[in-house]
Design a protein around this nucleic acid. Structure first.
Length: 867
RNA sequence: GCGGGCGUGGCGGAAUUGGCAGACGCACUGGAUUUAGGUUCCAGCGAUGUGAAUCGUGGGGGUUCAAAUCCCCCCGCCCGCACCA
């Protein structure tokens, strides 16, 4: 019995595809296009099977759409800037560029061994000047358009590493690598004005109907629209410190979503970083100390959770906007964020839990203004819980008797009429800070001149190349102490000046790479006609961890580029699919050290042990990660079972959006299946007629049944692939495989037309398997004597007459319980089905001789009898 | 706290969207082939019951001729956001 030789076969077909440049594509304006893209990888080292699942999905879609006649763009590249390269440089004394390029070479070879249908002529690596030069130009255009700007902002500063940390890199208030307590620092940083598109980005989510609902919600929450009002509180007793820049006494401007509760106001609170608070601190040492303390407080969840609501009474009083005789005290409070709303709030303790806690602590009045339904206004009291539900306004002058929603509207109108405020909208979304004090990133193309200020690098001087002769001996950014690169003449005045040593956030590169792929070798960032033809991406595939940042930045970037005249497109990704992860059992030694799956084995009793016989603690199944060592290397799997077996396994069993557990028995099951398929084709049960032989003449029932099954499978698999139900598609193909195998030899031998049906079934299997196991499919196709490559065959189309089942099984229920089934020709008259059902002995038994009270016949499905 | 998702055999999952629950696969059990292991082949595989049958999709209730699917209440797990005014 022959075994399928995947080693020879897979290299052979990969060579054929490459030599024929099968997957290199060009824009063909008359052919419908389909752009399939998997989120490009960070070249971190070697691929493991977990990485490969989404590339397999993308490849399946690409090959399937190709077979359907689309002109398919399916590119691959490298998101090559980033921190791990610098860490490796420090730890292993390798230059980040060398480390990165070596990893790219390794991973490219691994992808090629998987037989993915990429157009490698379009490969890009974002760390190369040929790529990043274009984003430097984009940045200059954004700057000119006012979409990029510089401002002071508070950052997390690691005093040991001398660098800024992203929020995700701060763990429990400490730097993730150094362990040093993180400080807040005010630094000048570059920002992209994503908030110029806030409402547009929010509204356009409605149109992203081929995105997962979950991701759309996450983006909506991230943008975080709140409808409310701005309200002005005049300062009752102005002092020099309360004068605004224009010399007038400024009102305190607060944002609220509950203007209806204004009559319940008992204090106003400012953020510690509010300009007024800062000015007041100039005359008040106590306040200055309080503010400094607030800024020292960490930003981690745990710290915030535990932090007490604290305030500092400024001594100022604010005038109630609806009642000039009413005054409320002004506090500076540690829980008021400068970044949200106006950096100031009014507190209504009766109807907001946090305000209530604050009021109790500082003995401020609690005035209920919303009465719960059915409550008595005379004795409604607020205890330790604020009342936040709907109700009827009271204690509120002109708002009395109104419901909350109505009162919000009326209060807003009154504020506007009185010039005391206006209805407005606040968003959670903030501008995107893109400066990183890092070496391995794209240099920000500006120069700081003492005389001229910030000077953009002239376009003719682009790219600003990242120098490779740097030293990592000192902490911090090597660019900042590079001897020559940093010092340049000002492009304006020629006097000595310094380059910006910050580099871009690496999300900058991934915000437009999908455009570069459209014309990856163009002198410009991209050719306009190529983008017009290929964009938007029809199917984007990647992890849900990018649901907000990368996907939102890309949506913003596309709009910013449109505003700068680069293209005419709003949404880059028409379809999005977020795949589940590949998980694997974790193992630890008795000492608690993680063990690789290769380091454990099963002893004769089935217990898990090390090769040395020591006991192993079997942990839970978790996402594959290097740190837990529960990774299954791709090379070992491909070496043992071949690329096709790995690919099919990754598509079987679990639905693609859910996590998949990698098991050794699972992959072995697929390997057995691969061999069964190969045997069916290389040693067919009967001699096959030549390709193209028509099926004619009478067929025995089993053979006719197979023929129907072939067409039903084509229809079902096509539908499943359209809907990303890959696990179901695999199950259908395996069902058909089982049918072919179970064909009785006598039936095959009896009918002259039977071998032609068998051929049709085997050819169909090869074609349906093409997108999943492309090498085996080619080998099957060639062995069957098919012409050309299966990768060039059109997708099979089901014959609707043959796909239709001509005989149906109808269930017969009595009082809701299944009692029998009936075989009937499809679409038989309901009357005849009903009478047949009623005559069944299994039915008569339950009727007890009485006529049924009711009979429901659902054509081709069921007869339901009520006794 | 707010928002979302999920819960089906020993396991991964399927169920034409209200119409035969458990497709397909993994594991397991028995048998055949084999010197043996592996492979391959045949049979079995939700629970109780000798059987007829009964029960069964996290738990409880409801709608319906018919519910894994729809409605209400509860339990558990997972994910996102969170001092957001």
């Amino acid at each position: 019995m022959s075994r399928y030789n995947f080693r020879e076969t897979e290299t052979k077909w990969q060579r054929v595809w490459r030599e024929r440049r099968l997957f290199e594509v060009a824009a063909k304006p008359d052919t419908p296009k389909y752009y399939v893209l998997e989120m490009f990888p960070y070249p971190s080292g070697k691929l493991h099977v977990g990485h490969v699942r989404n590339y397999t999905m993308g490849d399946l879609v690409a090959r399937y759409r190709r077979a359907q006649g689309y002109n398919v763009l399916h590119p691959m590249g490298w998101d090559a800037f980033g921190l791990p390269a610098e860490n490796a440089a420090i730890a292993e004394n390798v230059h980040p560029a060398i480390w990165t390029r070596q990893n790219i070479a390794t991973m490219r070879a691994q992808l090629q061994r998987m037989g993915f249908a990429y157009d490698w002529s379009r490969e890009v690596a974002t760390c190369e000047p040929e790529y990043y030069r274009h984003e430097q130009k984009m940045f200059l255009d954004f700057l000119a358009a006012g979409l990029a700007y510089r401002k002071q902002s508070w950052v997390n500063w690691d005093p040991v590493e001398n660098t800024v940390l992203a929020n995700e890199q701060v763990i429990d208030g400490r730097g993730w690598r150094s362990g040093a307590v993180v400080e807040k620092r005010l630094l000048s940083q570059w920002f992209l004005r994503i908030t110029a598109f806030t409402e547009e980005l929010l509204e356009a989510i409605q149109g992203l109907d081929r995105w997962p609902e979950r991701v759309r919600l996450m983006q909506e929450n991230w943008i975080g629209r709140s409808d409310g009002a701005r309200v002005f509180f005049d300062i009752a007793s102005p002092s020099p410190a309360t004068l605004a820049d224009n010399g007038k006494t400024a009102a305190i401007e607060v944002f609220t979503t509950r203007p209806d509760t204004l009559f319940g106001a008992s204090f106003v609170a400012l953020s510690p970083n509010h300009p007024l608070a800062q000015r007041l601190a100039g005359d008040d040492v106590g306040l200055a100390g309080f503010i400094a303390e607030c800024n020292r407080m960490g930003t981690s969840e745990a710290v915030i959770e535990a932090a007490e609501k604290r305030g500092y009474a400024t001594g100022l009083a604010a005038v109630h906007p609806f009642d000039a005789n009413r005054r409320v005290p002004v506090y500076v409070a540690n829980f008021v964020l400068m970044e949200y709303g106006t950096g100031a709030i009014f507190g209504c303790p009766a109807h907001d839990q946090r305000d209530l806690d604050f009021a109790r602590k500082y003995a401020l009045p609690v005035i209920p203004v919303v009465l719960p339904p059915g409550a008595d206004p005379a004795d409604f009291r607020i205890g330790e819980t604020a009342y936040v539900e709907d109700g009827t306004l009271f204690n509120s002058a002109f708002l009395d008797g109104l419901a909350v929603a109505e009162a919000k509207r009326v209060a807003g109108e009154r504020l506007e009429a009185a010039g005391r405020g206006e209805r407005t909208v606040a968003y959670r979304l903030r501008d995107w800070g893109v400066s990183r004090q890092r070496y391995w990133g794209c240099p920000i193309p500006v120069i700081h001149c003492r005389a001229c200020g910030i000077v953009p690098v002239p376009e003719s001087d682009l790219p600003v190349r990242l120098p490779e002769d740097v030293s990592f001996a000192l902490p911090g950014n090597p660019l900042a102490h590079h001897p020559s690169w940093k010092y340049v003449a000002c492009p304006h005045c020629g006097s000595p000046a310094e380059r910006e040593t910050d580099t871009f956030d690496t999300f900058f590169e991934s915000s437009w790479y999908f455009l570069r792929f459209c014309s990856a070798r163009d002198e410009r960032a991209f050719a306009r006609d190529a983008v017009d033809y290929w964009m938007p991406v029809d199917q984007y595939i990647g992890g849900v961890e990018h649901a907000v940042l990368h996907l939102l930045y890309s949506r913003f970037f596309t709009r910013a580029l449109k505003q700068c005249g680069y293209l005419d497109l709003d949404e880059p990704f028409a379809g999005l699919f977020t795949q589940g992860m590949v998980c694997h059992q974790t193992y630890r030694s008795e000492d608690g050290d993680w063990l690789f799956p290769e380091e454990v084995e099963r002893d004769p009793d089935g217990a898990v042990v090390t090769p040395g016989g020591q006991a192993v603690v079997v942990g839970r199944t978790e996402k594959m990660s290097k740190s837990k060592k529960n990774v299954v290397g791709l090379d070992a799997i491909v070496e043992t079972y071949g690329a096709d077996t790995a690919r099919l396994y990754l598509m079987s069993d679990s639905p693609p959006e859910r996590d998949l557990e990698w098991t050794d028995t699972g992959i072995e099951g697929i390997w057995r299946y691969v061999n069964r398929l190969w045997r069916m084709v290389s040693e067919p049960a009967v001699a096959l007629p030549p390709p193209g032989t028509a099926v004619s003449g009478e067929l025995p029932a089993e053979i006719a049944g197979l023929r129907h099954a072939v067409h039903r499978t084509i229809a079902a698999v096509s539908d499943d692939l359209d809907k990303f139900r890959f696990n179901r598609a695999v199950a259908r193909i395996r069902e058909l495989t089982n049918m072919v195998e179970e064909l009785p030899a006598p039936a095959l031998a009896a009918a002259p037309a039977a071998p032609a049906v068998l051929r049709e079934a085997l050819e169909t299997l090869a074609r349906l398997l093409g997108p999943m196991m492309p090498h085996l499919a080619e080998e099957m196709w060639q062995t069957l004597g098919g012409k050309g490559l299966v990768a060039k065959q059109p997708w099979p189309v089901a014959d609707p007459d043959l796909a239709r089942e001509e005989q149906v099984t109808i269930a017969v229920q009595v009082n809701g319980k299944l009692r029998a089934t009936l075989e009937f020709p499809r679409d038989s008259a309901s009357g005849s089905v009903e009478s047949a059902a009623l005559q069944l002995p299994q039915v008569a038994r339950w009727l007890d001789g009485r006529p049924p009270r009711k009979v429901i016949v659902v054509p081709n499905r069921i007869v339901s009898i009520v006794a």
